[in-house]
C-alpha cells in the first residue's frame, strides 16, 4: 500500500480559538496557514487530508477513502497524506480552505474532489479511475517493462561469465 507520506506542515502562527462565524471564517484563515495548505495541496498529484495515517487511519471514513485509493492503484510516488490530527491549525484551516466541514478531503491535481461519500460514488461509477488516469496518478499497468530487458540481458551474460 502507501508509504508513510504524512508530512508535517510547518505551521507556527497561533490560530485563534475564537468562535468563527462561517460567513466570515475565510477572513481568519491567515495567509501563513493558507500558504502552508496550498503547498500541501501542491505537494503531490493526489493529496488526502485524513485523520490518522494511511497505515493507521483514526476514523472509518478516512480508512474507507485510503482503501479506495489503494484499490484504484494510486501510485505511492504521486500520493501524499496529511494527518489533520497532528495539527489543529491544519484541521481547522483545511475546512475553511476547501469550504468543506468534514475530513477526509481528497485533492487531485490541486482540485478539490470531495469527501468519503463522493470518492465512493466516483469509485463505483468509474469516474475516479478516469480522473486518476487523466492525471497520470496510477501505477503503470506494466511496471516491470523497463526492468525486464535488463534481467534478460543479465540472464544472457551470466551463463557466459560462469564459463
Amino acid at each position: 500500500m502507501f508509504r508513510t507520506t504524512v508530512n508535517r506542515i510547518p505551521l507556527r502562527s497561533t490560530f485563534s480559538q475564537s468562535i468563527l462565524r462561517p460567513q466570515t471564517a475565510l477572513r481568519f484563515l491567515s495567509s501563513e496557514t493558507k500558504n502552508a495548505i496550498e503547498s500541501a495541496v501542491n505537494s503531490a498529484k493526489v493529496v488526502l487530508f485524513m485523520k490518522g495515517t494511511p497505515q493507521q487511519p483514526q476514523c472509518g471514513f478516512s480508512r474507507a477513502t485510503i482503501q479506495m485509493l489503494g484499490q484504484q492503484g494510486v501510485d505511492p510516488e504521486k500520493f501524499a497524506a496529511y494527518n489533520v490530527l497532528e495539527d489543529q491549525e491544519l484541521r481547522e484551516g483545511i475546512k475553511e480552505y476547501s469550504q468543506w466541514p468534514t475530513i477526509p478531503q481528497l485533492y487531485v491535481d490541486k482540485e478539490f474532489v470531495g469527501g468519503c461519500d463522493i470518492v465512493m460514488s466516483m469509485a463505483q461509477s468509474g469516474e475516479l479511475t478516469e480522473l486518476l488516469e487523466k492525471h497520470d496518478a496510477l501505477i503503470p499497468e506494466e511496471p516491470y517493462d523497463e526492468a525486464e530487458p535488463e534481467k534478460a540481458a543479465d540472464a544472457e551474460v551470466k551463463p557466459r561469465s560462469r564459463d
Binding site: 469550504q99 468543506w100 478539490f112 474532489v113 470531495g114 469527501g115 461519500d117 463522493i118 460514488s121 466516483m122
Partner: peptide, 8 residues
C-alpha cells in the same frame, strides 16, 4: 450540480 456542489 456536481456532487461537491450538492454536498456543500
Amino acid at each position: 450540480k456536481a456532487l461537491p456542489a450538492r454536498h456543500r
